[in-house]
Design a binder for these strands. Structure first.
Length: 809
RNA sequence: GCGGAUGUGGCGGAAUGGCAGACGCAGCAGACUCAAAAUCUGCCGGUGGCAACAUCGUGUGGGUUCAAGUCCCACCAUCCGCACCA
């Protein structure tokens, strides 16, 4: 066709990226803010693959949609740039991490800009920038002053490969989350953050959040709150008392023995001369076992100490054992054992021939030849003295108070959450701003002296001794005490990578402020985050730490809210296909199945890639990259472009049909987008385009429909959207238009084809007017299937606009 | 072991309890072309049938309902999370 300009993505995309740079489209005015945040990336040397892009595309589409709804966007990007890979690269190549990091940032920034993301680079932050980590350190100092950061010598998780301590959250299946090496225990002086002080609030406030239930559940489980009682057992013939924690105080009469963790402070001393050798051996062996060994030991082990404890309720002597199935750092490190009603205690009792006393009747009676523990708190109490006859479920709730009233112990709660091991023995992280003074102890570096700059070192290698490489720089380590002025030494441990990422979203709204972490007025205006988009891998670590930091900063008056992220969306991964098996596999260099967005953008354009990233599948599920699917999207954009160019200069009158198509299009796209069903938004565009292509051959498509389509499409394919808008005569950016609305009355069909079923099976169709009477529809329907109406009609069902079902016989 | 997610054509996937398979990919046939690519048109779950049509069909087995991919019960498989937390 004459005058037809083919779709040239290169020309269009280049043109509009330049325009956006010259005339930013996101302007504040007096608009309300909308804060849409991406999880900021670690600037890896590999750059991004199409999987990383998925989240960025989703957040960009959502942001542009919000923009068309009239919001001013906070849509920033930054770099989580401290961490091991840069340091390991430095060790290998002798390049300072700050140099390799800067190079990687540059490359990834280029890639991200090709998504056409409207990131506001004026807000950019980098966790390794001293102006940034000054405030990371400042938060630590504040926590230290509030007693939330403290030092402790304790056995911690130690990764022998990374040569650093790890938080519990960083240990997966007994292995290092980062490198996969088996984690061992090491006694080290550590900086800890008292996140447990916030356990209750971290748990309760989950209710406030519009987050995936899965993530809330994971955090709930990680915090692991339980209700029960601490009960004091006197050691027979000695002055000591052993306190146990139990969630089942109702079964106290059934406690027939007690088990202590080998690490319990009384473990060794409970041994008698006869048992001493065996007890010491057991304690020693337990201390040598790694986490993995301990978890893999399915068979229970244990040793009798020779001592007995007195059950406070019935005065009975119960033997005290040691076993490593009891955890030293949960509860009190000691448990009372009720083998009749606990699986683990049952197994232990069976193995070592300990007595089993049932105290809850199952189905109203005592079980003969018990083969497994009865763990339900359901049934009447038996063998339980004055508790006999009570309901277990009731007693379970009341017993803690009863025990407390009698002076046998107290009502209590417990958490699985532990305090956060916060120090790392590595180089590339924020120095912990503490000075150790022989007289004053640990002293915080005065706030006006922050940041404590990370010094250059010659050797980045972790020492492996439990000291950071910083310890080798005498000139840096030796300083004076800020308190008394005497010679003192700097803390040489650094912070974990999580430190910088636990609060970065606050800094974006005031990233150049050198006097405050964030200006309060700006914080009140632009925070918190309305929508947070990122992978589910941060369900516990990053998201829990960020919530903790936010609550702390709220407590000390820096900000006015106590939850950072109102809404959270986890996008699925984009997998590659295994060349041989065809199975979905993570994209990785070693498998050679990485698809680079650079190649795709070059061949098909950024708009095509954006649409394919959405069309590939439901955004919350993992999906598989398919090059041919990518081509299909490209074909669609070409068809759309051709349809557009053939209609844009025609003078087409609005018909009822066109009006219907337009309203239905707005309805479909809007509702699907609101439901975050982004894959079906794209198919919705294809459907409407197919219809418009048909109309192009006959009546053509009117301007209003083309304009509406253009605005709807713009958040998804912004370059072509802008180009179409301009060609339709728009003088301002398409993103300064208003999101279209629909009129339901103009969407509906006058006539509808509905199915006619007999006994639930479709036997024909009938086209009826939507406002036809039931009797008329039924009559028409019966006419269609009259040959098949053999027998008696029992019931006739008509669901207007949907179906007729005739029930026979 | 506990918890969660998922299971629909050759593939990715779509379906407020109401005609299963939208949309796309692949495939087949045709048009255009000397030819190919691109593009356009048509077909495209299985079985039977020239066809109209019939029949089976959403992991398996039951159930509720006029009607079930969708709701309920019991399983199976895959993936993810937690895992001796008393």
């Amino acid at each position: 066709m004459a005058g037809k300009v083919p779709y040239n993505h290169n020309v269009i995309e280049k043109k509009w990226r330049k325009r956006w740079k010259e005339n930013p489209i996101n302007v504040e005015g007096d608009k309300e803010k909308y804060y849409c945040l991406d999880m900021f990336p670690y600037p890896s040397g590999n750059g991004l693959h199409v999987g990383h892009w998925r989240g960025y595309v989703i957040s960009d589409v959502w942001s542009r949609y919000k923009m068309l709804q009239g919001y001013y966007l906070i849509h920033p990007m930054g770099w989580d740039a401290f961490g091991l890979p840069a340091e390991n690269y430095a060790i290998k190549n002798g390049v300072h991490p700050s140099i390799s990091t800067a190079e990687n940032v540059k490359n990834i920034k280029r890639q991200i800009n090709e998504i056409a993301a409207i990131y506001d680079w004026d807000r950019e932050v980098n966790t390794t920038d001293p102006d940034y980590y000054k405030w990371t350190q400042w938060i630590f100092v504040k926590m230290f002053k509030e007693g939330l950061a403290y030092e402790k010598e304790m056995p911690i998780n130690w990764c022998p490969s990374c040569k650093t301590g790890l938080a519990n959250e960083e240990v997966v299946d007994g292995k290092c989350e980062r490198c996969g090496a088996e984690v061992t225990k090491k006694n080290l002086r550590q900086w800890m953050l008292k996140i447990t002080a916030y356990a209750d609030r971290l748990l309760a406030d989950l209710d406030k959040l519009d987050w995936p239930e899965k993530v809330k559940k994971m955090q709930t489980d990680w915090i692991g709150k339980s209700y029960g009682a601490e009960v004091d057992f006197k050691v027979d013939g000695r002055d000591e008392t052993i306190t146990v924690y139990t969630t089942r105080p109702d079964t106290l009469w059934g406690a027939t023995f007690m088990v202590l963790a080998p690490e319990h402070e009384l473990s060794a001393s409970l041994a008698t001369p006869e048992t001493k050798e065996a007890v010491d051996k057991y304690i020693y062996e337990a201390s040598m076992k790694s986490n993995v060994d301990r978890m893999q030991d399915k068979e229970k082990t244990g040793v009798f100490t020779g001592s007995y404890a007195i059950n406070p309720l019935n005065g009975k002597k119960t033997p005290i054992w040691l076993s490593d199935y009891v955890l030293a750092d949960y509860g009190t490190g000691a448990i009372m054992c009720v083998p009749a009603h606990d699986d683990r205690d049952f197994e232990f009792a069976k193995k070592f021939g300990l007595p089993i006393v049932q105290v809850i009747a199952k189905d109203g009676k005592e079980i003969e030849n018990m083969t497994e523990a009865y763990t339900e708190a359901a049934g009447t109490m038996i063998n339980s003295g004055d508790w006999n006859g009570m309901e277990s479920a009731v007693l379970k709730k009341e017993a803690p108070a009863m025990i407390e009233a009698k002076g046998y112990g107290k009502k209590t709660t417990n958490y699985k959450l532990r305090d956060w091991v916060f120090s790392r023995q590595r180089y590339w992280g924020e120095p912990i701003p503490i000075v150790h003074c022989p007289d004053c102890g640990p002293v915080a570096v005065p706030e006006e002296e922050l940041p404590v700059l990370l010094p250059d070192v010659e050797k980045y290698e972790p020492t492996g001794t439990g000291e950071s490489p910083l310890a080798a720089i005498d000139s840096w380590v030796n300083t004076t005490c800020p308190c008394c002025g005497k010679p003192a030494k700097r803390e040489t441990n650094t912070m974990p990578q999580w430190a910088g990422s636990s609060w970065y979203f606050l800094r974006y709204v005031d990233n150049k402020n050198s006097d405050e972490l964030v200006n309060r007025e700006k914080a009140d205006k632009y925070l918190p985050v309305d929508m947070y988009i990122g992978g589910v891998e941060h369900a516990v670590l990053h998201l829990l730490y960020s919530r903790f930091y936010t609550k702390f900063l709220n407590d000390i008056g820096v900000i006015d809210f106590d939850e950072p992220f109102k809404k959270l969306f986890n996008q699925g991964m984009v997998c590659g296909r295994d060349r041989e098996t065809g199975a979905a596999t993570k994209m990785s260099k070693s498998l050679g199945n990485i698809v680079s967005p650079d190649d795709i953008v070059r061949d098909y354009g950024c708009d095509s890639l954006r649409l394919y990233e959405l069309f590939i599948g439901p955004p919350e599920l993992d999906s598989i990259w398919d090059d041919r699917g990518m081509e299909g999207i490209y074909r669609f954009l070409n068809r759309l472009w051709n349809m557009f160019t053939e209609n844009k200069d025609r003078d087409v009158a609005v018909t009822k049909e066109l009006e219907k198509i337009r309203n239905k299009m707005v309805y479909d796209i809007t509702t699907r987008l609101e439901q975050f069903s982004l894959n079906t938004v794209v198919s919705g565009f294809m459907e409407v385009n197919n219809k418009l292509v048909e109309l192009t051959k006959t009546t053509g498509v009117d301007k209003e429909t083309l304009k509406t389509l253009t605005i709807l499409l713009a958040p998804f394919a912004p370059h072509i959207g802008e180009e179409m808008w301009e060609q339709l005569g728009g003088t301002d950016s398409v993103f300064h238009q208003t999101w279209p609305t629909y009129d339901e009355s103009k969407m509906a069909d006058d006539e509808k084809e509905i199915a006619v079923q007999i006994n639930g099976k479709t036997r024909g169709t009938v086209t009826v007017s939507v406002d036809a009477e039931k009797d008329a529809v039924l009559a028409a329907a019966k006419e269609v299937v009259k040959d098949k109406l053999i027998g008696n009609i029992v019931k006739e069902i008509y669901v207007p606009g949907r179906i007729v079902n005739i029930v026979m016989k």
